[in-house]
């Protein structure tokens, strides 16, 4: 279980995240929806240790808020960042192996399950990271994070800039990952799709996080448009 309490981030004069509190339950998808610029990405970058923040972040009870990004990754925080950040100077296979453990058998099993999840990647393994399309990069980024064997998989805007048909495919994969018992924190502006796969939901606006509770309990007339338009 990942629990974030009273997390705040300030860049220069802007307070991007104000006292955010949020819990990612085990074996469930928790989604965080909200308009662009509301601070969602800053929040998850802070959880991964890439942005400095105040407040506490605990993974299974252990305080990780002072640990380096690499230590957090090794403890099981795996981030699929917005815009994916695939390494162009590495092949797709190398991208996948970068965060994987050294044990060859573990690597083989994980690689097999990633390829099972995204069969399209199998033919691309020896291509350079920048030679593949946006949708394939997104799959590669998710696969790369899964290869680390995460406790919590954080997906930041996985549908960003993808063709609708690819978005469908990515969300199917997320549902399958979740069904396998992986706990996921999903950041999305495509709120409908996010709420479809998520068990718990939070909304973010102007740096503040608000819990919407279990998605199953959301009123059927819940007005998403208020959040956006």
């Amino acid at each position: 279980m990942l629990s974030i309490e009273g997390l705040s981030i300030a860049y220069g004069g802007i307070r991007a995240v104000r006292e955010a509190t949020l819990t990612v339950e085990d074996a469930a998808v928790t989604c965080l929806i909200g308009r662009n610029g509301s601070g969602k990405s800053s929040l998850v970058m802070a959880v991964a240790g890439l942005v400095s923040a105040s407040g506490s972040t605990r993974l299974d009870g252990i305080d990780i808020s002072r640990k380096s990004p690499a230590s957090r990754a090794r403890l099981g925080i795996s981030l699929v960042p917005e815009s994916r950040r695939i390494f162009g100077s590495l092949t797709a296979r190398e991208n996948l192996l970068l965060g994987a453990p050294r044990d060859a058998r573990v690597v083989a099993t994980r690689l097999a399950s990633v390829l099972d999840l995204f069969p399209a990647l199998a033919d691309l393994l020896d291509r350079g990271g920048h030679e593949i399309s946006g949708g394939q990069q997104q799959m590669l980024a998710i696969g790369r994070a899964l290869m680390c064997g995460p406790r919590v998989l954080i997906l930041d805007e996985p549908s960003l800039g993808l063709a609708p048909i690819v978005v469908i495919e990515v969300f199917r994969a997320i549902a399958r990952i979740a069904a396998a018992g992986q706990s996921v924190l999903l950041i999305e502006q495509n709120a409908k799709a996010a709420l479809d796969v998520a068990t718990y939901a939070y909304a973010m606006s102007l740096g503040k996080v608000e819990s919407l509770g279990a998605t199953a309990d959301l009123p059927s007339d819940f007005e998403l448009r208020d959040l956006y338009l």
Binding site: P69, A70, P81, S89, L90, E94, L98, G99, C148
Partner: peptide
């Protein structure tokens, strides 16, 4: 090699490499 991979990754995107557990 794996080590070479880490060097290329850190060279390209230090932060992302560290988010995957590589120690830059």
């Amino acid at each position: 090699t794996r080590a070479g991979m880490a060097v290329r990754a850190v060279a390209e995107d230090r932060a992302m490499a560290s988010a995957l557990g590589v120690r830059p």
